[in-house]
């Protein structure tokens, strides 16, 4: 990045010096904000420090913390991945048609549904868990992958509906009518015309519901009573309860669990930008 310094900001910049000064302040702010994440990586690379003070920079590339994290938490990471992917599928399967219906059909009561969707934000997760636990016991969904996927999907559905609806409203009615004139049924129009046109909002909604499900701790904690289904958030939490001294591998596991967030940040940034411009152009 430093190599492009003199050339990049050249066009239409009045006081380039002062602006790079602002950039320096910005970098400082970022450094302060990201320090805890740096410290997480730093601690992960010093597994020998145990309960001692951690040095400001790692001495070398000691990956033994990571290897024990993979041994301890590898399975839980895979569980997280499976549950989060399942939750995304469920979330999109329910929310995409609903978003389309609310956006394009003049349904009486659509406003009430949108309002209700917004209001769901108000219901605390622990209250949901409190009531759903006994329902899950009755339905045999406790300690099941499917049960946790369903619960995690609920974290993303309201957001996904609101987001995709705001994009699908912008699809011109003529496009949909043209498809229907060509003999496509409602469902085919939705699958072959509407979904491809809303690709960006679909991806954005999917990314966010993945992140919600991946980050979930509360449903994993409350809707599981055995070790059968244990995502990495729950795995790390229980691990520090049992192994107070082994911070190196705890932090290494934390680093691994933060990777999807880092990857999705880069991807989502792009899709959110694409989605917003795509929506506002219409």
């Amino acid at each position: 990045m430093a190599t492009t310094t003199p050339a990049a900001p050249a066009p239409a910049v009045n006081r380039p010096k002062r602006r790079w000064g602002t950039t320096a302040v910005g970098i400082l702010i970022l450094a302060v904000m990201l320090f805890p994440l740096y410290w997480m990586i730093n601690t992960a690379l010093q597994p020998e420090s145990g309960l001692l003070e951690v040095d400001p920079v790692p001495h070398g590339l000691d990956l033994s913390g990571f290897s024990s994290a993979v041994t301890e938490q590898g399975g839980h990471l895979l569980t997280s991945l499976a549950v989060a992917l399942g939750a995304v599928v469920i979330c999109l399967a329910f929310s995409a048609p609903a978003a389309y219906g609310l956006a394009q059909f003049n349904l009486r009561g659509a406003k009430t549904v949108v309002f209700g969707t917004l209001i769901t934000q108000m219901v605390p997760g622990i209250v949901i868990a409190n009531a759903m636990y006994s329902a899950y016991v009755d339905l045999g969904l406790v300690n099941s992958y499917f049960g946790l996927m369903l619960a995690d999907a609920s974290l993303g559905i309201p957001f996904a509906i609101v987001l995709m609806r705001s994009f699908m409203v912008a699809i011109p009615r003529e496009v949909i009518e043209a498809a229907e004139v060509d003999g496509a049924g409602r469902l085919r129009t939705f699958v072959q015309v509407v979904l491809p046109m809303s690709r960006n909002s679909l991806i954005t909604a999917g990314l966010f519901s993945f992140l919600y499900a991946w980050s979930d701790f509360m449903f994993a904690l409350t809707l599981n009573t055995t070790d059968h289904v244990k995502p990495v958030t729950l795995g790390i939490y229980q691990y520090i309860g049992a192994h107070v001294g082994d911070w190196g591998s705890v932090m290494a596991a934390s680093v691994l669990s933060a990777i999807p967030a880092a990857i999705l940040l880069v991807l989502a940034q792009k899709y959110i930008a694409a989605g917003i411009t795509g929506g506002s152009v219409k």
Binding site: L34, L37, D216, T233, I236, Y237, V250, S254, A262
Partner: peptide, 29 residues
């Protein structure tokens, strides 16, 4: 200012990391 967009994107990271994980990292700090 230059790099504004990049810095603004990166600053989102603490919000995207699972909250339990943030809590555990801070517990050490």
């Amino acid at each position: 200012f230059p790099l504004n967009g990049v810095l603004r994107a990166l600053i989102l990271l603490p919000w995207l990391v699972p909250m339990v994980v943030s809590g555990i990292v801070w517990r050490r700090i």
